[in-house]
């Protein structure tokens, strides 16, 4: 499925981030460290899947014809998904999932705030809802950083390890490409590069409070926006798309 219209491509990109993040979070259902976390993690997962649906529905409207939200989720292969690599990494242990979440939430809040001011009124409306969720998500994941970072020696170590592994995937959040440049110029897209310092402030403050250190890793792994993913995304899609692939063209 090749998308050409820049706005549609941008909207789908945002939908992809949200869907893949929500899917990964939902994998915790019945596996969390205690029952309250089963509920809390699935709350956040539901927010992301809900967000994905709003973006995809808008993209489907833009494309018209037979395309629906499900076309984007279930009928595209790995090369057409344009989510951040950060979102697709396997859930790992609880520290990995919460560190990923924190690093992403610290980005997602300023991102959705900026998107509220988009020249595109649909995007601004979706962002207004997402911003409220992101505010809560960040508070929650920040609290977990404090608990895990400043909990026991084991939790500290697990948390620091997770951050060290995740750090190289954070650059991608602030990357600009030709698609973004064009849409930034018309006031539609968020200039993600400009969010970096706010993100780094949040992360630095929190990690410091959590007795964790900012990883030293340099450079970043990117490619998600061009459909160059880790091997893991293919397996995620194989599972997620199983029904639509095995029984195509039916109503469920």
């Amino acid at each position: 499925m090749k998308l050409h219209d820049p706005l549609t491509r941008y909207v789908v990109r945002l939908g992809d981030d949200a869907l893949i993040m929500g899917h990964r979070l939902s994998e915790w259902m019945s596996r969390a460290p205690f029952l309250e976390e089963d509920i809390a993690l699935s709350n956040v997962a539901l927010d992301f899947v809900g967000r994905a649906r709003l973006f995809y529905q808008y993209a489907a409207d833009l494309m018209g014809g037979e395309v629906t939200e499900n076309t984007f989720a279930y009928q595209r292969d790995v090369r057409d998904f344009t989510n951040l690599l950060l979102c697709e990494l396997p859930r790992g242990d609880f520290a990995f999932t919460l560190c990923r979440q924190f690093l992403y939430d610290a980005y997602s809040l300023p991102f959705t705030q900026a998107l509220c001011k988009s020249a595109d009124s649909q995007l601004a409306a979706i962002a207004a809802k997402a911003e409220k969720e992101s505010r809560y998500h960040l508070r929650r994941s920040r609290d977990w950083m404090l608990r895990l970072g400043d909990g026991t020696a084991e939790s500290h170590e697990r948390c620091q390890n997770a951050l060290d592994q995740l750090w190289i995937y954070t650059d991608e959040m602030f990357e600009c490409d030709a698609l973004l440049d064009g849409l930034i110029a018309t006031g539609v897209a968020v200039n993600t590069a400009s969010l970096r310092s706010e993100w780094l402030d949040t992360v630095t403050e929190t990690l410091h409070a959590a007795t964790l250190v900012i990883p030293e890793a340099q450079g970043g792994v990117t490619g998600g926006r061009e459909g160059i993913h880790t091997d893991d995304l293919g397996f995620l899609l194989a599972e997620m798309q199983f029904m639509q692939r095995a029984y195509p063209g039916l109503q469920w």
């Binding site: 939902s26 994998e27 019945s30 089963d38 709350n43 499900n70 997620m240």
Partner: peptide, 30 residues
């Protein structure tokens, strides 16, 4: 009971079904 239904969250056939099932299983945890 979260398990037999939770098994299908990752494989739900549409996004709407996925969201509904997540909410349902979450209720059971509650």
């Amino acid at each position: 009971g979260e398990q037999p239904e939770g098994n299908w969250i990752s494989r739900a056939p549409t996004l709407e079904r996925k969201a509904i099932l997540m909410a349902k299983v979450q209720d059971e945890a509650g």
